[in-house]
Design a protein around this nucleic acid. Sequence first.
DNA 1: CAGCAAACCTGGAACGTTCCATAAGCGCAT
DNA 2: ATGCGCTTATGGAACGTTCCAGGTTTGCTG
Lengths: 333, 333
Amino acid sequence: MANTGSRPTLSDVATRAGVSKSLVSLVMRDEPGPSAETRQRVLTAADELGYHPDSRARLLRSGRSRLLGVVFGIQHAFHVDLVTALYSAARDSGYELALSAVTPDRDEAEATASLLADRCEALIMCGPVTPATGLARLATRLPTVVLARDARGADVIRTADAEGLHQAVDHLTGLGHRRIAHIDGGRAPGAAERRRGYRDAMAAHGLGDHVQVVGGGLTEEEGATAARALVRQRTPPTAITVFNDRSATGVLDVLARAGRKVPEDISVVGYDDSNLARLAHVDLTTVAQDVTTMTKLAVARAVDRIDGAEVTRRAQIVPPHLVIRSTTGPAPA
Amino acid sequence: MANTGSRPTLSDVATRAGVSKSLVSLVMRDEPGPSAETRQRVLTAADELGYHPDSRARLLRSGRSRLLGVVFGIQHAFHVDLVTALYSAARDSGYELALSAVTPDRDEAEATASLLADRCEALIMCGPVTPATGLARLATRLPTVVLARDARGADVIRTADAEGLHQAVDHLTGLGHRRIAHIDGGRAPGAAERRRGYRDAMAAHGLGDHVQVVGGGLTEEEGATAARALVRQRTPPTAITVFNDRSATGVLDVLARAGRKVPEDISVVGYDDSNLARLAHVDLTTVAQDVTTMTKLAVARAVDRIDGAEVTRRAQIVPPHLVIRSTTGPAPA
DNA sequence: CAGCAAACCTGGAACGTTCCATAAGCGCAT
DNA sequence: ATGCGCTTATGGAACGTTCCAGGTTTGCTG
């Protein structure tokens, strides 16, 4: 039973403390049973041996891992914010996170597969690109929560994106803007609803005639391209709402190079309130998604599913709020 | 033996295919032995049951996980680049990555501890803040590679930081600059050597009298504070080298607000060539660390240690190279 | 046709935990 | 004394794999 060479096990601690494996196990897990005195003896024995429980064996036996798998785009500023908040939310619920990143040469399928093998108890997908049917299939294998995007037939936690654009447009009209354009996110998650929100808000302000949607995307480059098109127009807009912060920085760059002062000549509103927007150098007015609430809900939903709880509303929609920084100002006269 | 309810196991597949557990195990691992026909039969049985091997049980038995633990700062643009490259490097060596992020409310110790429990075979620490002694202690438990920083007594893969600042200063003097200041990284990993590189390079160019080091840090805010101090000087520098890209964006912001044109009035050089520097809106001249090489070396070293190979030089130092973008230009007349 | 290797397959013992049923010790009321 | 209940401790069976030491076939050689 004595272990030569490699790491110490429960039995090593047990023999050293002169008790049984089971007793050590109880102490390690802080379960009631062992007396204070024995507990102490076991603890010091474990310490002297440098014992650390083997989580794999532990979970193999217990059938539980208390592990939530998270798929996220590591290059994606907003996902980084989500993961940061997920760590706190998970901790509060007594779970750990297993991260699996999507990178330029590691796609979502690969990231997901590696988590499946790890026996996570549930999956949280940050703004996945996998189609809804694929996500639904996944959900049959494992509780799956889709975060920050919509997907029929899945558990969804997302922002009321249309509402976000309403707030942006309200803010801009309040500043006197009328020619407000929208650079959209193409087929990216959330793009359709943000576009719709923009249109509705414009209509609500009686600015239906000024609606202008320009094809964009989620990268700086795509934002920049769209911005160049807008700048070249005969009567360019005095304000632009952009699909996300990243794309918005591309827009800001084009405006600066074209000699348009922000916000004096033109106002810009981003989306996400990612780290990017908060950079002093960018200081972007943006629609903030409520990351704290969203991640709490996501973890709660995952845990509910794990526990087999009843789930009534599959989609939970969190209101956004506008964060006003320095890229929006009164419409030029 | 038949499994009710939860996920199928080896034995389930075995009974369905009418063979033994062991045989199925061989097929699953693609080991030689089973005939082509049986192999096929097992494979379809597994497929029909939706069988997926349990990696925990697998590694509990085999003692190996083929898992490299990675500790990194998720908010840290440069670490994100490292992780992205690490995924490729690990894949090439037949290993998987287990990520553990450091966030504002999850410190390095916590991130490290969670990996230890996971029985990774080695640890890769991206620019850790843990003191060298702590890292050395860690290394006694588990092969540990320190990436992108120096640490006595540990396996280290890092950039020749002094050399990087030499290149930056060479570039600037070549453009006619003489009053070149350095905003440093305080006690951050690498800061001391970059500072030294700057001093040496200035001296080598006979500019010892113009040496000016301003206390900074690794965030935008710290860069901004330092820049404000520089701008207020009677004869401000015509060029600034900054500890990292993130801090440099803070510097750029202050300069812009102070009405100093970059690079016409003043040049700025960052460090890391992180995503940040490449943003169209920033387009920062910067010292690029060779992420691909560094991560390859880090994985190779980790694998060597795991295999118990002889290690001769514990520190491996990778040369950086300057990436010239739009924040540097000729010294003003 | 015995003998033997090669090719294919199997049973059961690990791996380090947790879980369960049960035992030992002790105080106290009957 | 006996029985009861409480607290504390124990042994051994899982969990789903891999590994090892065989066991059957089969076909070929001498």
